[in-house]
Amino acid sequence: MANQFIEDIMSFQFPVITPETEITEAIEQLQKFDLFGAPVQDKHGALVGFISEQQLLAPLLQSSYFCDGATQISELMTTEPLAVSKNTTVLDLATQMQQDKPKIYPVIQADKVIAIVTRSHVINALRDNYLSCSKH
């Protein structure tokens, strides 16, 4: 386990959401990938923010009630998202997840989002290690 890195468990399947993405398109993308949130990238793939279902709830409720115009992700996203590198260890990220609480982290390489890693990925890796320890 000590040698297991994020690159061993990360997923390359995630939505491409930009600051210009309209709120309903972002919701469709999150649902398509069965995620609660996703990185927001600029046109070069660089991480510029993060959007979660929680952040979509209030504006979606207001827009639904008042039937007012389109909302872009740039108006809602967190602009200083936490991210990890593929060389971060699973144990380090598990520890960080206990303190910082995000459920999804973008994986960054050369300032570009290359993958995501979820709390479920980390829990599954820890479970697998736990099970292998209990067999000895």
Rank of each mutant, 00 (worst) to 15 (best):
I6D: 01
E7A: 07
I9E: 04
I9L: 03
M10D: 04
F12L: 08
F12M: 08
Q13T: 12
F14R: 00
F14S: 04
F14C: 03
V16K: 06
T18A: 05
P19M: 03
P19K: 04
E22A: 11
T24C: 05
E25A: 11
E25H: 01
E25T: 12
A26C: 02
I27M: 01
I27C: 00
E28A: 12
E28I: 10
Q29G: 01
L30S: 01
L30A: 04
Q31V: 14
K32L: 02
K32Q: 06
F33E: 04
D34T: 00
L35F: 03
F36C: 11
A38F: 01
P39H: 06
P39I: 01
V40T: 00
D42R: 00
K43E: 10
H44V: 10
G45C: 04
L47R: 04
V48Y: 00
V48T: 07
G49S: 03
G49W: 02
I51C: 03
I51L: 09
S52M: 04
S52K: 01
E53M: 02
E53T: 09
Q54S: 09
Q54A: 11
Q55M: 12
L56W: 00
L56S: 00
L56Y: 01
L57G: 02
A58W: 06
P59L: 05
P59S: 05
L60C: 04
L60E: 01
L60N: 03
L61A: 13
L61C: 10
Y65G: 10
F66C: 02
C67N: 14
C67Y: 10
D68K: 09
D68H: 05
G69W: 03
A70M: 10
T71Y: 03
T71S: 06
T71E: 07
Q72P: 12
I73P: 07
I73C: 05
E75N: 09
E75I: 14
L76T: 13
M77E: 03
M77R: 05
M77H: 09
T78G: 03
E80L: 13
E80W: 09
P81V: 00
P81D: 04
L82K: 09
K86W: 05
N87M: 09
T88L: 08
T89N: 04
V90T: 10
L91T: 08
A94R: 07
T95S: 15
T95C: 09
T95L: 14
Q99E: 14
Q99P: 08
D100G: 08
D100P: 10
D100M: 12
P102W: 07
P102E: 08
K103S: 13
I104W: 06
Y105I: 11
P106Y: 06
P106T: 14
P106K: 05
V107T: 00
V107R: 00
I108M: 10
A110G: 08
A110Q: 13
A110P: 09
D111I: 08
K112M: 11
K112D: 07
K112W: 10
V113P: 03
I114A: 00
A115R: 06
A115F: 13
I116D: 01
T118A: 06
R119T: 14
V122Y: 02
I123L: 15
A125L: 07
L126G: 08
L126C: 07
D128L: 14
D128W: 06
D128Y: 04
N129Q: 15
N129E: 15
N129T: 12
Y130P: 10
Y130R: 12
L131N: 14
S132Q: 15
S134A: 13
S134E: 14
K135Q: 15
H136C: 14
